[in-house]
Design a binder for these strands. Structure first.
Lengths: 418, 418
DNA sequence: GCCATTTAATTCAACCACTGAACAAATTGG
DNA sequence: CCAATTTGTTCAGTGGTTGAATTAAATGGC
């Protein structure tokens, strides 16, 4: 999970006991989620019918939500037939917002997402961060975050928390154990950010959560993608290959928070040796370096994020080596993905990160392997599609995860803003 | 999930809304779970301290649980220091119990597990069921179930539900889509059982749940295994290779309930063709037939469950072909398991089903592959161990799942027994 | 042997949040 | 312009938790 300061909340504690006030707490969440999920602004009466609560209760709950600036009344009431016109309820666009941050190999990003899910700010600072020390990188990130925060405040938003995406393994407490492509090892992010506004807890609410880039990108996809697919695998193809696993609408993080190491699934047990110590890992066949080498671009030392667009350009132009490289990579990816789908029975696979611009060429071999190897594919097909957000979805996903936390447990925000 | 009659319960509906009575409903579950999880009979006061509820509330809740025969007071009160002696609370051994059933290739099984988790009945009917029609097989099963039920009733137990384990894919509604080794296809279990006591719903409570054998075996392991490992992979090595995935203490069933097809994870993408249409599936290297063939026992046509013991005997005797066969199978299994652990970050892998008696020889190569290929294995080792229940754990797991449902939502039972 | 001490469990008035019904508000249609 | 209709609010009633006081049942010191 990697939350800096685990903020479990007052009620509904780890014991699960339901106290007096939990009733209201839970119903606030139920009603707010319903408003968030509705496709058009629902009325109080519709919410009552949908949730099974009384209209009286819904009114009281909605009053609390409006007072807490989480919900607003949509002025143009949706016209229906006879009767008193309903007043539509929408998520407030001027209430709390989430700050999403990302450190990657060749850029820093900060973005702000409001309650409705709209991206209100998006700043990117391009620079090769490999030669930069972690402390300096976080310095620049803090500056970028401050700029984003200032712009958001000017728009009337209040930041309710932040999430930082890192391309590596993050353990509890925000410690980055290993980010190989960044060259980080045991970097204590909260320690290095100490004293900066980002790190100051406000009323006990954790200001910053550090998480794996693939995890947050998957959350971004859950947030931005088409509704319906609540169980999917989001594959982030960068230099390494990470995956975020969303099961029934919740991100699965694993026993220690280190799930999703798709890049080291064996696709050829006696194949190419991998720097992880294993052999035949997917990364050696479908990782960025492997694709570049197969396309004849080895050692070109491209900026990491232009590698994908460069490959896309070459493929577009019909370069045979590139096309073969992408087909081979897609086949290897398909083998690994087929195993995952057999195991987890997912209905959707999303190609994200560096794979997003290459999805046109990667998808066919992936689909071919999946439909050949997945037992249940015959009577229940698996969808393979590019990520809705494309690259840099991790920052958006991080910001969205902050917002999602508020929607899932509005009491935390309401207590803060009193 | 494959519940025959989805019994969502009255309160805490699909909307998640929390109504008046849900408060009690939830607290009943909280207190009961606590009693179940405690290592010695807790007092009401201890429960209050542990849950955060008031002693008054706990008393009221416990009264309800005792009245509903879910909890009993342990007579020998645990001695402490001064003060009025506490009255220990334990799960009732004479209350509701679960019936677990299993149809497999060469046996039928029925067992009864009470609330405390004790196996109170265990009947096995050995017979090769491949030549038998599904209707006849279910006939025999119903007879076995009736015998187990009668014996349980004689001991003062009340059956609260049943779960049937089938070695195949089960879809919602109890329809067995495909059980290859049994030769079943689209078998409508509830339809064939119609009219039998097993299929009669009592007060809307689903009398029978049909589920995959590997899923229920994993639940059995969760129930019987050492506490602590709440995220594990339970591998059932039969003719096919199934796996039950338990994440944070709950069985993961997949988007459509067809998760765990470990047998068709590719371990050699250009390897042996598999009858699933794929190539190099694990089943072709570590399935029972593959091991027997490699050990020189191909076509011996052994009763399926003696195959494992036969192999164990040969390995015990030092037969070189068998030892090589087991090492190779273990290596293939290790490759697949390493991929799974990389993906899901599990800390434990349980070898169950037919693998249980062979674990002594399979574990070393599995561990070798896992520690070589799992990225995080270095600083956080993965445990590989044989199943605590061994073969036939599916029936026990099924019975335990019935009991677990009661502990997780006691209101369902209390409403029934009023 | 008795009483202060201690801890367990119950009782009871207060209170919080939901319920259900009655009522006020706001619009359509005849 | 009024009946019909639907939304939203008000208010007494109720279920269930809370917190403090009370009763219950032991230990241990004098």
């Amino acid at each position: 999970m990697a939350a800096l300061w685990q903020c479990q909340g007052v009620t509904n504690t780890s014991t699960g006991a339901v106290r007096q006030g939990s009733l209201r707490e839970l119903n606030l969440a139920v009603v707010l989620r319903r408003i968030a999920a509705a496709d058009r602004p629902p009325s109080r009466a519709e919410l009552a019918a949908a949730t099974g609560l009384t209209r009286a209760t819904v009114s009281a709950v909605v009053d609390d939500l409006i007072a807490g600036r989480l919900v607003a009344e949509a002025e143009p009431a949706p016209r229906t037939g006879a009767g008193r016109p309903a007043r539509g309820l929408v998520l407030a666009a001027d209430g709390p917002a989430g700050l999403g941050l990302e450190v990657n190999v060749d850029y820093l990003a900060a973005c702000v997402v409001d309650l409705t899910g709209a991206v209100r700010q998006h700043l990117v600072d391009r620079a090769d961060l490999r030669p930069v020390s972690p402390a300096d990188a976080l310095d620049r990130l803090a500056a970028l975050a401050a700029a984003a925060r200032a712009a958001a405040v000017r728009e009337g938003l209040t930041l309710a928390g932040a999430a930082l995406a890192v391309p590596g393994l993050v353990s509890d407490g925000g410690l980055v154990r290993l980010a190989p492509n960044l060259g980080w090892r045991d970097v204590d992010v909260p320690g290095l950010l100490a004293g900066r506004p980002l790190a100051e807890p406000v009323d006990g609410i954790p200001p910053l959560v550090v998480d794996n880039e693939a995890n947050l990108a998957a959350l971004g996809e859950l947030h931005a993608g088409p509704p319906g697919s609540a169980s999917f695998l989001h594959v982030s193809g960068e230099i390494g290959i990470g995956a975020g696993i969303v099961l029934d609408g919740v991100l699965y993080r694993g026993a220690r928070g280190w799930s999703g190491e798709l890049g080291h699934i064996p696709v050829d047990p006696r194949g190419r040796p991998c720097r992880c110590g294993g052999q035949g890992c997917l990364e050696r066949y479908a990782g960025q370096e492997a694709i570049l080498a197969a396309a004849g671009l080895a050692g070109a030392d491209l900026p990491a994020d232009t590698a994908a667009t460069r490959l896309a350009d070459l493929a577009e132009a019909g370069d045979p080596a590139t096309l073969t490289a992408l087909t081979d990579a897609g086949t290897a990816l398909g083998v690994a993905v087929a195993g995952v789908v057999n195991l987890l029975d997912l209905d959707t696979v999303v190609l994200g990160g560096g794979y997003a611009p290459l999805a046109r060429w990667l998808s066919p071999p992936v689909i071919a392997e999946v439909s050949r190897r997945v037992l249940t594919a015959a009577w229940s097909p698996v969808t393979v599609r590019p990520a809705a957000l494309g690259a840099q979805s991790a920052a958006v996903g991080g910001a969205a995860s902050v917002v999602r936390r508020i929607v899932d447990r509005p009491v935390g925000w309401l207590a803060r803003s009193s």
